[in-house]
Write a protein that binds this DNA or RNA. Structure first.
Lengths: 225, 225, 225, 225
DNA sequence: AATGAATGAGGATTCATTCAT
DNA sequence: AATGAATGAATCCTCATTCAT
């Protein structure tokens, strides 16, 4: 367990610091000194900073990917030939997202990391995530497709990303928003509160009427219906 | 034009590089060498890298803030005592957001920058933006409040941020998403297309039913209604 | 008087900053910004930082040199062929040193500058002072020689420097020492108090018995006498 | 010996350059290039330039402080209840000051450094020295107090600093003064010669008559007696 | 007489990485 | 399996000085 100890300490420290400051702003010195580990240990155990970043994600995404596959297996087994409703799909994903990091008590960190993965200039990371975990996402999207037969493919693609933005933006900036909500409205929101709030919004967004086509005269506001 | 030239070249180069790589990943050397300007010029004209980052934002947000105030003035003048509908408010904001940077042909850059402002570890930047431009946003939020009288204040707060996430996430990751959309669905989306697509989604999200309260028995799924 | 104004402001500011921080630690930017003068003004009016340092000293040493020459003229006229007592010479120097900068209310600054001139690595400055003001000092030393006929030349040379050290060290570190004296002994000493204290010490030091010669057997401690 | 080698080379080089030019005027590049050591080595081994400066002093003052404590222990053991004469105290200090750096063949450097510590704008250094070595000095002052019962406390405070100035000023400017003494009087003085010369002067200064009080009528020149 | 702009050299410090042990 | 030492490259920033106006 000697190796495991050092490796774990590095990962534990790295994920917190990355989540707090971002990747470029967190130096290996920051990590190793806070983890009380030798400076060379990161390169020794992981090979490079990039590999460390990927390892941090893998520690979340590997179990997530596995559980989500299992959950979808179960869902499909239960529904057989029947279509799985959108709400159930979303609920399943939410549950899995909440379950996995909850075991490590660091949902917030995971969310921040996800946000960073999209916004920080780490091409290697996006590539890595896509290669390693692309298929679960693809499987999920296909099920969503079956659940929303009325939605053109392109429209569904965009709406899923709209919602991804909603979720990642909100959850990754959670601390700041929570502070404001507390100060302004006296609300102490938990992540579960937030998921509760997100549910109707996401469903409504996915079910929103189609946009007017560009060529169409704009005198009828599509959202007015 | 001597000063204007150097200063402008620095700003033009900086905003592009910042948008491409982020702040920490862009060095002053990167900027000055690409702008073919002396390395010390940034510190001479702006004082520090932080101040340069703020100046890059100011060049967008100053005119935006001004135009948006004007647009809201006009809206309020036109509606008098009457309530301004939510759709009109959103439309006005969208128009202003699209107009201002369009004049500089760099809407995409502006969107990336906005996204970075939220996700990158630049506390000073968030503080700066809040101090300089907080009041336009506050004014807008107040008008949204009047336009959505049925929405509890806290709920409106969260939904606005949900939508902010949607917009910023989508527009700041635009290039990557556009590539995928093109490859998968043969769609060449312009930003205006995207705004058209966003409209019904945002409206539906704001009008979504209220979430079930926590104390309520959870056997009724709120989104099932 | 336009030029005079800028030049004076620069000199006034420079002498204070030099006295506070030393020469290398004071940048032209420090000086010009505090003096609210253009950065290029120093080089324009003085040619270089070195020349500014010299000018700062000249503003004190020119009048000092002149007054001291006059005072010595007067002394010699009064004593004619008679020897001028050491005490009178010292008193005359003290008076001149106190008089000149007192007119500019900056005795303390002058003393700090003198101390710096000796300790800071400004070869050009020592050379400049020696060239410009060496002759007054030489004249004074010659009178001291006549007043202390029993003292070997080399011994006198060293004792004069011992005393120079006493005076410059004390007066240039005055602020710190004054603070301690105040805290520990409840004394608020003025520079005039200090001079009063210095007088008997300097006189006793100059009149101290000659040291034992090196060749002499060391069983008699010279200071025991 | 790998570490010791680099660290020692840095310290050896730094103390010489600091003594020659002062702290601000000596860059880390100066030091590392002359010591043929990597530029980053200073920050690696010492952390910062400030810490290097302190380390340079510590290498002298640590053994000095230790030896001086021992010497005073021995003195007090020998004299028991009896008072230790001022001459013996001064002699002891002189001996210790001469002994310690002599082992490193760099008395001159040590003296220059001591002078710089007082005159250069390195607040951190004065603070460091005071914190680390204040107690030896305090102990010495207390013994001086017992050896000069006739001297008011404040007067003793000032006279000790007068003499400190004499010694530091002379010894830290030694090279220049030695050159002059050689040229003018054909004297090659060693440091031991200088100490021999300092002895009677310092003793006489400490035993000088008290100054006239301020309130006293000034028609009697106090030093005329 | 004076100044805003600009510059090249150099400042201390931090970086991720390598290597001998 | 692990580490202390070391390094070359790069970081941001400040410097005194110059120059066109």
């Amino acid at each position: 367990m000697a190796q495991s100890d050092t490796v774990t300490r590095i990962l534990d420290t790295a994920e917190v610091l990355f989540a707090e400051r971002g990747f470029a702003e967190t130096s290996l010195r920051n990590i190793t000194s806070k983890a009380r580990v030798n400076l060379a240990a990161v390169n020794y155990h992981f090979g490079s900073k990039k590999a460390l970043i990927q390892a941090v994600f893998a520690r979340y995404l590997d179990p997530f990917s596995e559980r989500f596959h299992e959950a979808l297996d179960e869902l499909q087994a239960r529904h057989g030939e029947q279509q799985i409703p959108l709400e159930v799909l979303l609920e399943t994903m939410a549950t899995t997202v909440l379950t996995v990091p909850a075991e490590r008590n660091s949902l917030k960190v995971f969310m921040r990391l996800l946000g960073l993965a999209y916004s920080q200039a780490q091409g290697h990371l996006r590539r890595y995530i896509h290669e390693q975990y692309g298929d679960v996402f693809t499987r999920f999207v296909e099920l969503v497709r079956q659940a929303t037969p009325g939605l053109p493919d392109a429209e569904r693609f965009w709406r899923l990303h709209f919602m991804l933005g909603t979720v990642i933006f909100t959850l990754s900036g959670l601390d700041a928003l929570r502070d404001i909500a507390d100060k302004e409205y006296g609300e102490q929101v938990s992540i579960r509160d937030l998921v509760r709030r997100l549910r109707p919004v996401v469903v409504a967004a996915m079910h929103a009427p189609l946009p007017a086509t560009l060529e169409e005269p704009s005198h009828v506001h599509p959202e007015a219906g």
